[in-house]
Design a protein around this nucleic acid. Structure first.
Ligand code: DGT
Ligand code: MG
Ligand code: MG
Ligand code: ZN
Length: 629
DNA sequence: GCCGTTTTCGGCCCGACTGTTTTCAGTCG
């Protein structure tokens, strides 16, 4: 019998629930989050230059297109053309496949947002390592001028004017011009604009201003609680990337209804954690917290709550696609409701489901709203039946104090049972990598015996003896096959040598996958959000091998891993790979992180059938050949 | 520059807030 440990979700969100994210969840119980990819904006500030003969990856191409867009914008080119380049950049950035593989097939134009012109330029970039069009645009502006766009509040118009009229060629010179009054003296500008620029300089060109969902949540919770205590709210909930369960979020988006919106806004901008008020209106305000996070708050009348939920949850791509589609059918959408263009007749929506229904499509879960085919699927009523945390029957990646976990195996078992799981695998580290407390073969044998005895004593729960065995640089494993053969469950993962070449790393992981004792690969790309880029690896080959050998690939639920990320997990499923959603728990509390892993799976369109640990134990056993008891 | 369940040309989401504006442009979400 299976019972989820998740809290039920509140219907009308009057009080802030203990788990902020339950608020952001819809009828389904599960949550979800934007790809492992580096945010484009963070990249293009660093003038990218690709070394001769180096591998041009998707992020490089996206950054190049994004820089082209920025320079066209500076040049005052058509906004539509600018948007087209930004769109192409985002499309490439969100691609699950390697762009060079796509190019090799001649399929660049099949990418939505990439046409023949951009396709040619991408081809050129891939083949020569540079793009003449970009080079020529660059030659029109000193490189520092583009950096001006990275100052909040400075757009293409202001950047162009200070460059052309004041000769400002860098952020530093912009500061000087703002301080000495030259900027304020420009026609149509004034002292307030100069002061605003000066205030915003410290936030200019932040390398990595996005934070992981896990880091944001405590702040969100605190803010919602504070608002809830002090302001006359009727409804309060999260929106934006938070509600879509994006792996990283750029800001905190909150929305509310109230009998007294002005009062709520007053309270909001006066909260003790506010370090700067960015905007203060009656339906929309924005602040900066003392730890540098931006928080947006929107308020609409109750009757428009559903429409605002739709609008403010985004994503931007999803909204634009939905609005363009609707417009073709004579309907204009905004955050208050739906209007018939012909008659001007408006209809408000207090319910988000009704909003999508009015557009004659199925309700789209927030995790799917990425502009990645969900609208077409909703129209065709063919959206996936997404996996939820309720479907998860066990955790197959967990540590104990035998290696670097913090508690005895028994405590992990207790926590897993408390969640309603019917099985768990203890997968302590192998010892060869000098990891704190990694097990040597003798210790592992000892642990296997210990786990067998413990397992035999458990009613209605199966404890599997496993290992997280290190994949060495040559692709061999840290334990001999005879030892691995005694385990119920083996996951293999990379913990060192991250800088190997792409070919080496790919061969290394593929060799591990082909070992018949290996059941799954943990955190397959090794990225740590905000700290370490994924290692170079040909995932397409990894996926093909995993599918062929029946080896599962993990979605690791740790908030700073989330690896595989959504786009990759989706691609893996397309190629027939079985996924396993694990927490990699090092303590009982970590088991709760499953919500993040499930979120990633949902963002990847994954159904329960695609996740190994949704299987009841009887079926799981058949797949992984573990011992009878 | 991209794109096509009435289109291969003529459209391209829509609104809030700010500042300096006498009627709106710029920036952002
Ligand atoms: N229709 C429309 N909606 C937008 C636009 N920009 C933003 N939105 C909506 C959808 C977004 O999810 C929501 C919040 O905006 P944000 O800039 O905070 O984006 P989001 O939260 O999705 O990502 P983030 O993690 O904050 O970068 O507002 C836009 O240009 N058009
Ligand atoms: Mg946001
Ligand atoms: Mg926002
Ligand atoms: Zn682990």
């Amino acid at each position: 019998m299976l019972k989820s440990a998740r809290r039920t979700k509140p219907r009308n969100i009057i009080a802030v629930t203990p788990c902020v994210l339950t608020c952001s969840q819809d009828s389904r119980d599960a949550p979800a989050g934007v790809g492992s990819r580096r945010p484009i904006t963070a990249i293009f500030h660093n003038r990218i230059s690709i070394p001769q003969g180096a591998h041009v990856n998707n992020a490089d191409v996206a950054a190049t297109l994004s820089e082209v867009a920025a320079l066209l914008d500076l040049k005052n080119e058509s906004g539509f053309k600018v948007r087209a380049y930004y769109n192409a950049a985002r499309a490439v950035d969100g691609l699950a496949e390697e762009i060079r593989d796509v190019a090799a097939r001649g399929s660049l134009k099949n990418i939505k947002g990439v046409g023949s012109s951009t396709a040619e330029r991408i081809d050129e970039l891939l083949q020569t390592g540079s793009m003449k069009y970009l080079e020529s645009l660059r030659s029109e502006f000193p490189s520092g001028v583009r950096d001006l766009l990275g100052v909040p509040g400075v757009g293409p118009s202001l950047a162009r004017r200070v460059y052309q009229e004041l000769g400002v060629e860098s952020v530093e010179q912009l500061r000087e011009a703002s301080e000495d009054g030259r900027l304020a003296a420009l026609s149509g500008l004034g002292e307030k604009t100069a002061q605003n620029v000066l205030r915003n300089l410290s936030r200019a060109n932040k390398r990595e201003s996005r934070i992981s969902l896990g880091k944001a949540l405590p702040v969100v919770e605190e803010l919602m609680q504070a608002l809830e205590n002090k302001a006359p709210l009727r409804q309060l909930t999260t929106a934006g990337s938070l509600r879509r369960w994006a792996p990283t979020i750029g800001d905190i988006d909150l929305m509310a209804t109230s009998v007294d919106p002005d009062r709520v806004m007053e309270v909001f901008v006066s909260l003790p954690q506010v370090s700067q008020v960015l905007a203060h209106g009656s339906t929309k305000s924005a602040i900066l917290t003392d730890n540098g996070l931006q928080v947006d708050l929107r308020i609409v009348p109750d009757e428009s709550f559903g429409a605002l939920l739709q609008h403010f949850t985004g994503s931007k791509d999803h909204n634009i696609e939905l609005r363009e589609y609707s417009l073709h059918r004579g309907l204009s959408l905004n955050e208050y409701g739906i209007a018939e263009v012909e008659t001007g007749q408006r209809r408000t929506f207090d319910d988000e489901h009704a909003f999508y229904e009015a557009l004659e499509m199925a309700y789209i879960e927030p995790e799917l709203r990425q502009g990645a085919g969900e609208i077409a699927a909703a129209r065709a009523r063919s959206l996936p039946d997404l996996v939820t945390t309720r479907d998860i029957r066990g955790d197959l990646h967990a540590h104990s104090e035998w290696s670097d976990g913090s508690v005895p195996i028994e405590s992990m078992v207790e926590a897993a049972r408390a969640r309603g799981y019917e099985y768990m695998a203890i997968t302590d580290h192998s010892g060869g990598i000098g990891l704190a407390g990694g097990l040597n073969p003798e210790r592992l044998l000892e642990q296997i015996g210990y786990i067998r005895r413990l397992d035999a004593s458990l009613e209605g729960f199966r404890l599997l003896s496993g290992s997280e065995v290190d994949i060495k640089r040559d692709g061999s494993l840290d334990f001999p096959d005879e030892l691995l053969a005694q385990l119920d469950w083996v996951i293999a993962s990379v913990h060192s040598g991250f800088t190997q070449t792409r070919e080496q790393m790919t061969d290394r992981i593929i060799r591990a996958i082909e070992n018949p004792h290996v059941d799954a690969i943990a955190h397959p790309t090794g990225r740590l959000i905000g700290r370490r880029e994924p290692y170079e690896v040909d995932l397409e080959r990894v996926f093909e091998t995993a599918a062929r050998t029946g080896t599962a690939l993990e979605i690791n639920s740790f908030p700073d891993r989330l690896d595989l990320v959504d786009t990759h997990a989706r691609r893996a499923r397309e190629l027939g790979v079985m996924l396993v959603v694990n927490t990699d728990a090092h303590s009982p509390l970590h088991l709760d992180n499953i919500i993040y892993g499930i979120a990633m799976a949902r963002r990847a369109w994954v159904e329960p059938e695609g996740v190994l640990n949704t299987l009841p134990f009887s079926e799981l056993r058949a797949q992984i050949s573990c011992v009878e008891r």
